[in-house]
């Protein structure tokens, strides 16, 4: 059996509904109309030990809800979850020692005191052996390069510094599974790189299974070999990133710098042609036409520069969203 097995889970929320305006507000005070919203509908997947899985989807797709059910915060309305033999919600106290959770938008560090103090508190919460804790802490702190940072009050830290402390805090008890809910949200390029490198490292060295949600496709590109795409509470794609790229990423972006006027290109597989400043932007489907054919065709014009780009994963995702109408 797989390490994490999610079997047909759903989560339905009861939400009170009302239209805008004071009158509607007063009306809803006396009589409320409830609607049932399916945040997640009949989702199944399984994850092996040591995998890094990118869990992606637009806002409100049900990513956080799934993470919350996996980490034992919410009870699924229907379906079953088994992680390492535990039922996350029912065996909560035993289960959560095995997992680390980072909510990118919420802090687990006490605001007014240095992060190191919170770390020490976590040692007591998780009943960790002090020697092991010190060793583990030193290692994490060094890897994340936060030796000085953890001695300053958390409120004085930058977002990137704080996030590194958050990640450190969630790994002090050496969890086997790490849930990251938008770990790079709002970070600058340097911090993002540190966080990504770190995630790769602990996955490789400590065999930590990582499940992360993100909107940053660079995260996915560098970290996840496998992605699960979710939209409107349903799984739309579950598989390798490579396959997704070849299936949906056959488009290539060609930027042609020229002073000539290129008329209509009579070739199959030209998806679009746009005039841009000092040239053209072509998008071609490499399944229908090879790049060399296009370049060959263009050679009759006076071209000063040519730039061929694979389609960015962002575009692929956008296309997927469009295909599935989410």
């Amino acid at each position: 059996m797989s390490y994490i097995v999610v079997d047909g889970i759903s989560k339905t929320f009861k939400v009170s509904k009302r239209s805008s305006g004071m009158k509607a507000a007063l009306k809803s005070f006396f009589k409320r109309n409830y609607v049932y919203v399916d945040a997640v509908k009949d989702i199944s997947f399984s994850i092996e030990k040591g995998e890094i899985v990118g869990y992606i989807g637009p806002n409100g797709a049900g990513k956080s809800t799934t993470i919350k059910m996996l980490s034992g915060i919410l009870l699924p309305t229907a379906g079953n979850i088994k992680v390492n033999g535990f039922n996350p919600f029912k065996d909560r106290k035993k289960y959560v020692s095995n997992i680390g959770v980072v909510f990118g938008q919420r802090s687990q560090l006490a605001w007014d005191i240095p992060a190191e103090d919170t770390f020490d508190l976590l040692r007591d919460i998780y009943k960790l052996d002090d020697k092991k804790y010190q060793k583990n802490k030193e290692e994490l702190v060094k890897l994340l390069n936060i030796e000085e940072i953890i001695k300053k009050p958390v409120r004085t830290l930058s977002l990137g510094e704080r996030m590194r402390c958050e990640i450190c805090a969630s790994l002090l008890h050496e969890p086997k599974i790490l849930f990251l809910d938008e770990p790079t949200i709002g970070l600058d390029a340097v911090s993002k790189k540190i966080v990504r490198d770190f995630i790769l490292k602990i996955n490789k060295e400590k065999k930590v299974t990582v499940i992360l949600t993100t909107h940053d496709m660079m995260d996915i590109d560098t970290l996840a070999k496998r992605i699960i795409l979710i939209g409107k509470g349903k799984i739309l794609y579950d598989g390798s990133l490579k396959k997704l790229k070849t299936e949906y990423g056959s488009y290539k972006n060609i930027i042609v710098k020229t002073d000539d006027t290129i008329k209509e290109i009579k070739l199959k597989g030209i998806i679009s042609k746009k005039k841009i400043d000092g040239g053209y932007n072509l998008i071609i489907d490499s399944n229908l036409v090879t790049v060399s054919k296009v370049v060959n065709y263009l050679s009759k014009y006076h071209i000063t520069d040519l730039d061929i780009d694979n389609e960015q994963i962002d575009d692929i995702i956008l296309k997927l969203y469009e295909d599935y109408k989410i």
Partner: peptide, 17 residues
């Protein structure tokens, strides 16, 4: 503010935390 979610992922009683 979501602190309760944080308590729920720690191996201690909620009321105690």
């Amino acid at each position: 503010d979501g602190s309760l979610d944080r308590f729920l992922v720690r191996p201690r009683g909620i009321l105690f935390q």
